[in-house]
């Protein structure tokens, strides 16, 4: 009889072992865009700040690789990544922004406070362009080559260690 009393403990130990093993496994919960490796979908967006420049997908096919940064003034990680975007710009990267569900005055205030590394910022009020290029949140950064092809996707805020990776991806895209 008494060995049966150990069964629950054995089953439980098995569960703990399995759960512990799974916890140590790297978990891939990032949803990568299926658009990577494809051409940028067609879009035209009005400027996100007054007297700014509008952007369109055609602008990207002029031979210069660029970073396309999806962000918003209401997003906290975007504040965290602002200095690293500026560093990328100083290293020679050309950065185009798309502001998601934002107001011109908020965008202007954000740029005044945290710096403006962008050559132009488009305004995507309904997240339409964001969804079309397969981005599921802010911030995200895409590397677009000189022919308007999406080469690389970075999900989440850019951290110091991501800067060289993005520069390398830009170089691979032909900068």
């Amino acid at each position: 009889m008494s060995w049966r009393l150990w069964i629950p403990l054995m089953v439980f130990a098995g569960f703990i072992g399995l759960a512990a093993y799974q916890l140590t496994q790297p978990k891939d919960d990032i949803v990568e865009s299926r658009m990577v490796g494809q051409e940028l979908p067609y879009f035209e967006l009005p400027p996100a700040v007054e007297r700014g420049e509008s952007i369109s997908s055609a602008d990207f096919a002029d031979g210069t690789p660029r970073l396309l940064n999806i962000w918003a003034s209401w997003c906290l990680p975007c504040i965290a990544e602002a200095p690293h975007l500026e560093r990328l710009q100083r290293e020679g990267a050309e950065i185009v922004g798309i502001a998601i569900r934002d107001r011109p005055e908020d965008v202007a205030q954000f740029l005044a406070q945290h710096g403006n590394p962008y050559t132009a910022i488009g305004r995507d009020d309904l997240s339409q362009v964001q969804l079309e290029i397969g981005s599921s949140g802010v911030p995200e950064t895409f590397v677009i080559d000189g022919e308007g092809m999406i080469r690389y996707q970075h999900i989440g805020d850019i951290r110091p260690e991501d800067v060289p990776i993005l520069l390398e991806e830009l170089r691979k895209a032909g900068a």
Binding site: M1, S2, L5, P8, F12, I16
Partner: peptide, 14 residues
């Protein structure tokens, strides 16, 4: 907790 309780159970229940 659960491991401890089940161990206690195995030792004491009989």
């Amino acid at each position: 907790y659960i491991g401890g309780a089940l161990l206690l159970f195995a030792l004491r229940a009989n």
